[in-house]
């Protein structure tokens, strides 16, 4: 009925269809949700996107803003995805070497909750740094890691 289980982007949650908020401009709506680990969030759906964004704000309107910013940033990085793939390939072949920091993930347009749950699934909770080599190989399993590699490449001056 009112509560729906959902697994997406490494997060298992239940959301409440009886607790829905719509943004002022009508382009977004959010359901109150809780993960199977007991963390509250807003599951935000934006016009033209099938997958929801996981926002950990208490206020749904902050959640709309956070989702909007992330989507805008994701679109910008997506327009340079060929560069991202080239950097990842070079990291895998050892032609480029740099570490990727947790800060790169935090500054990327990936939601913090998804990053946390992803790292947990891989037994990497609490990790602060990983070799670009490993992460680029993991990107073959989870393509969204490209957003983190992009952020690290910016910091390293490999991309600008």
């Amino acid at each position: 009925g009112d509560f729906i289980p959902l697994r997406s982007d490494w997060i298992s949650l239940f959301y409440d269809t009886g607790h829905k908020v719509t943004s002022d401009d009508g382009s977004q709506y959010a359901f109150r949700a809780i993960t199977t680990r007991g963390e509250y969030l807003w599951l935000v759906f934006s016009a033209g996107k099938t997958r929801g964004y996981h926002a950990e704000t208490t206020c749904p309107h902050s959640a709309f803003a956070e989702a909007r910013e992330a989507l805008t940033y994701r679109r910008a990085v997506k327009s340079r995805w060929d560069d991202v793939r080239a950097v990842a390939r070079a990291l895998r072949r050892g032609k480029l070497r740099f570490d990727v920091l947790i800060e790169d993930a935090m500054e990327s347009p990936l939601c913090a909750m998804g990053t946390r749950h992803f790292l947990r699934s891989f037994g990497l909770s609490g990790i602060k740094r990983i070799s670009g080599f490993k992460l680029a190989w993991m990107m073959l399993i989870e393509p969204q890691l490209g957003f983190v590699i992009y952020q690290a490449a910016l910091r390293e001056g490999v991309l600008s």
Binding site: F3, P5, F14, Y15, D16, G18, H19, R32, A33, I34, T36, R37, G38, Y40
Partner: peptide, 16 residues
Amino acid sequence: VITKLAAYELLAQERP
């Protein structure tokens, strides 16, 4: 990990 039932109860408490 919380059960489905616990999750539903917690969500119900969040309703306005």
